[in-house]
Design a protein around this nucleic acid. Structure first.
Length: 421
RNA sequence: GGAGGGGUGGGUGAGUGGCCGAAACCAACGGUUUGCUAAACCGUCACAGGGGGUAAACCUCUGUCGAGAGUUCGAAUCUCUCCCCCUCCGCCA
């Protein structure tokens, strides 16, 4: 969430930013109104409390001297009642203010292009060429069926649509990719975490999944837990409510976890094969950084993710997302899309975002500048990478005319085999 | 799941109704001493939210001793609920 003080002092900047995201700025006025009510009430109730505290001391003094304090006590009884009433009113207003703030989106960074639709995202970099081949490449779902390395039908039997089973060399290739990604992240200074796969409501609120995106998560109602839609949630919450020494920044974490997503409302196209599944593996990068460096850190994180695709020899491009295509919590975001030669289209495999202080304020993660007051850190995260579509593009790109798949050399030490089929 | 014990500032830990935002120690920071380091000594040292101040400095008020509710003129301290940690029992990969 945004700082209420910032909203109070720069309401026009906030309104403008919210509009750029294509969202309704009326919540800002609501929040400002509640904030004003809150401060008025606060002054009233704090004056009463001050009086109460003073009189209570007076009572103590009188009693210790053996004097009669009955009159003061009687008077304070009514003051205490009044305070109770005002405190209740204040609590209700603060609750509404907080709820209102939780629904105000983060505002885009100045370098983000305007735009409302995905078509307005900018391709700012690309790598690799469409390779020339003398046969018609198959889509991955045909390849994996013949090779028997991913079983969609049996996954549907076990659980439901969108829960594929990786089999034999398919399972091994999946594991190879994960280990490759993790090793690369470690080499670039990210500390590996293996976090819980279920989180509580406070954690889901911290990174912004609640209250906004509850529909996208699987909920374990009985225990009040949520299956993680991304490692971002448990990993970023790792340092929730802590104050870090300034010299500890930047903090870099990586984690490989399954991700569980309901993908409600996304039936129809683009769901074939591995294009959209309810459970998938992903290696996630997370950084907690000094506010002054967060945009440099965003660029270096993007490079960390891009390097993986280059090592795998997969053609990709980089999108700078326009304001309207930014998520609720993001100020700036890059997407990496890999080319699917079998489907003749781009597939999103990574999303790299800066949240500035938006998440960290909810999570209360701060650092202490030398000799100064604690300040909120900036948080960033990025996929490096999400597996299914990397797997899809890789299988398609490295297929042979006979329907076999050649494993990219960088993975050999992880797979133990060089060809599938 | 059952029984018992416990959660206090960055850390250890004292505090069972008012003089407690909280002793003491450690860590950290500033200083004195010192050729340098170490040691010693002195000082500073929680977080948040209001109000005042042009801003910083600063002044002032309020809240916070796991969370929430309650008793009381007054709660770290008493009561209730919840969460978490430890010990024992049960169950179990």
């Amino acid at each position: 969430m945004l700082d209420i003080k910032f909203i109070r002092e720069q309401p026009d900047i906030v309104r403008d930013g919210v509009r750029k995201k294509g969202e309704d700025p009326s919540r800002i006025d609501e929040a400002l109104k509640l904030d004003e009510q809150r401060r008025n009430l606060l002054q009233k109730v704090e004056a009463l409390k001050s009086r109460k505290n003073n009189v209570s001391d007076e009572v103590a003094r009188k009693k210790s001297k053996g004097e009669d304090a009955a009159a003061l006590i009687a008077e304070m009884r009514t003051v205490a009642e009044e305070i109770k009433g005002l405190d209740g009113e204040l609590a209700r207003i603060e609750e509404r203010l907080h709820a209102s703030l939780l629904l105000i989106p983060n505002i885009p960074h100045a370098s983000v292009p305007p735009g409302r639709t995905p078509e307005e995202n900018k391709v700012i970099a690309s790598w690799g060429e469409e390779q020339e081949i003398d046969f018609t490449p198959k889509p991955h779902w045909e390849l994996v069926e013949k090779l028997r390395i991913i079983d969609f039908a049996r996954g549907t039997k076990i659980t439901g649509a969108g829960f594929p089973v990786y089999v034999g060399k398919g399972a091994r290739l999946e594991r190879a990719l994960l280990n490759f990604f993790l090793d690369e992240a470690a080499a670039r200074g990210y500390t590996e975490l293996f976090p819980p796969l279920m989180v509580n409501a406070a954690s889901a609120t911290g990174t912004g999944q609640l209250p906004d995106k509850e529909d996208q998560m699987y909920v374990v109602e009985r225990d009040g837990f949520y299956l993680v839609p991304t490692a971002e949630v448990p990993v970023t919450n790792f340092l929730r409510d802590e104050i870090l020494p300034a010299d500890q920044l930047p903090v870099r974490y990586c984690a490989s976890t399954p991700c569980f997503r309901r993908e409600a409302g996304s039936y129809g196209k683009d769901v074939r094969g591995l294009n959209r599944v309810h459970q998938f593996n992903k290696v996630e990068l997370v950084k907690l950084v000094h506010p002054a460096t967060s945009y440099e850190e965003l660029e270096s994180m993007r490079e960390d993710a891009e390097a993986l695709l280059r090592k795998l020899g997969l053609r990709y491009h980089v999108l700078l997302m326009c304001a309207g295509d930014l998520g609720f919590t993001q100020t700036k975001k890059y997407d990496l899309e890999v080319w699917s030669i079998g489907q003749k289209k781009w597939l999103e495999v990574s999303s790299i975002s800066n949240f500035e202080s938006f998440q960290a304020r909810r999570m209360n993660i701060r650092f202490r500048p030398p000799g100064g007051k604690p300040e909120i850190v900036h948080t960033l995260n990025g996929s490096a990478l999400a597996l299914p579509r990397v797997m899809a593009a890789l299988l398609e790109q490295y297929q042979t005319p006979e329907g076999k798949v050649v494993v990219p050399s960088v993975l050999h030490r992880y797979t133990g085999f060089e060809i599938i089929g």
